[in-house]
Design a protein around this nucleic acid. Sequence first.
RNA 1: UGGGGCGUCGUCAAGUGGUAAGACACAAGAUUUUGAUUCUUGCAUUCGCAGGUUCGAAUCCUGCCGCCCCAGCCA
Length: 580
Amino acid sequence: MNTDGNNNPVSPEPKAAAQTTDFIRTIIANDLQSGKHKQIVTRFPPEPNGFLHIGHAKSICLNFGIAEEYNSVCHLRFDDTNPGRESTEYVEAIKRDIRWLGYDWGEHLYYASDYFDRLYDFALELIKKGKAFVCHLSGDEIREQRGTLTEPGRESPYRNRSAAENLQLFEQMKNGELEAGTCVLRAKIDMAAPNILLRDPVIYRIIKTSHHRTGDKWCIYPMYDFTHCLSDMIEGITHSLCTLEFENNRALYDWVLDTLETPCHPRQIEFARLNINYTVMSKRKLLQLVDEGHVSGWDDPRMLTLSGLRRRGYTPASIRDFCAIIGIGRRDAWIDMGVLEKAARDDLNEHAPRVMGVLKPLKVVLTNYPEDKAEELEAINHPQKPEMGVRTIPFCREIYIEATDFMEEPPKKFFRLAPGREVRLRYAYLITCREVIKDEHGNVVELRCTYDPETRGGSTPDGRKVKGTIHWVSARHAIRAEVRLYNRLFTVEHPDRDKEKDFKTFLNPESLEVLTDCMLEPSLQKATPADRFQFERQGYFCLDEQDTTAGKPVFNRVVTLRDSWTRMKEKMKKNTGTKP
RNA sequence: UGGGGCGUCGUCAAGUGGUAAGACACAAGAUUUUGAUUCUUGCAUUCGCAGGUUCGAAUCCUGCCGCCCCAGCCA
């Protein structure tokens, strides 16, 4: 059984919508029932040219999820046909991320590059059948002769070379006798086809770059449309699931498999890719953010890469839940960022132990509490789960409270601390604010309060009602920490919608707020990297794996708690503004 | 004005001729030593629009409108 950072078991099943059905699962169920297939084989085929993001998680959960449901296998296949931009660094990162998400490809790890020899033979077969030819047109010429959306293309002057000549030329390409760009191998289909992908598409090009796995063995590389369908076929994939933008490619996928002698013909099915507002999803844009230093790396906690989410503190289970909740369909869908955050909260609410930490400390001196006294107060680790136990928290004369929990002139309905007001210190005592100390600029720097010795633990023997309960930490015992508060990376819902403006102009300057003088309860001394906690009344936090050092813990805020007080404040502000 | 797709609540999403599931969001209320959690209630007489077929249509037919994808020797 896997465990999360807190040693809590991670449920292997997405809890919500676990048995949801969708049009793909319906097709598969029918194929099984009709006897078309005895077993199902799916695959996840990333190109190792970047890190996996939440959009890939949707595809991973779909493909590996289906395999699990049908007691079958999902292959992991690297689609590595473009050596110029692929690397083993990405291969390793991708494998690690899939495992972290909770999936296992077992023995079924493949690379399209493993099939280069067979792919080459298939190309030969195509040539012999008169279905492919070597074309010496330049890239520009090919583009120009391809026609447009409304006009048919023109046939290449090289289109009717003999099979023998094509075979010889293709061999020369393979042997490195021709330079990149001089010619390509094209499928011979139909230059007048309304589907542009069928207008004699390029299927092999010369690239004299060494490949991360095959080295310099090859200087010709097959294109996606030729590689993908044949790789699926070779592996006996039954259902080849991909995103909607490959819809037009399906005709080519089928053409290749129909034209060649193949033992099976996988079915390509497309579904809508994942879009989430207030972020960007394309690998190209994520890479740009990394390269240009707008974020600290692929694993920056603000990035919706799997490594970023992991570092931020998202649990694999919450991401799997998220993928189950959003469903699979064929329309362009925009998922609200709030749905992802909700998935994180739901999982963390259940598993994360509660602790107290003060992010923006304000010192409070309890004037009637003995200077040398200290006591241990008991706190529970999870209000709904007594089995998670209790811990003790030290208490003394000087404590820190959250600066935002005090207001000198509180608005109505503010039931925290204010001059003359009484609040409860969680698990400790009721205190009353007697005096406000300010610096020369008028900033509140300290509070003098009195505590009520009769209220130890926070109870009120006289039955008096106290509306506010705030968190605190003992000044003498607190451990100092850095806390990083993350907000949305972009300020607008659709950063890349505007074709005129670069998406980076919408980057949120306040996406990261670093707090260096946070005060945490001493029990957190025992936290180990990747452990997650709820800092009561504030949110869920995760001990950073990278920047935490022995003397200086660094916590990342995964997500805030729901905060109806802030919403109420905003509403009151709006209402007073519009009052007649 | 080529071809391929898609249009059901603010956002996702079931529904496949029998009279609009569910989730998120939102709103109101209850419980609460986290303004958290939990709970209760409310939230599409209507399915892009217009016709038609039918006893009956979101589901079938016709026309229209809107949005997405395709002119990389990327995947």
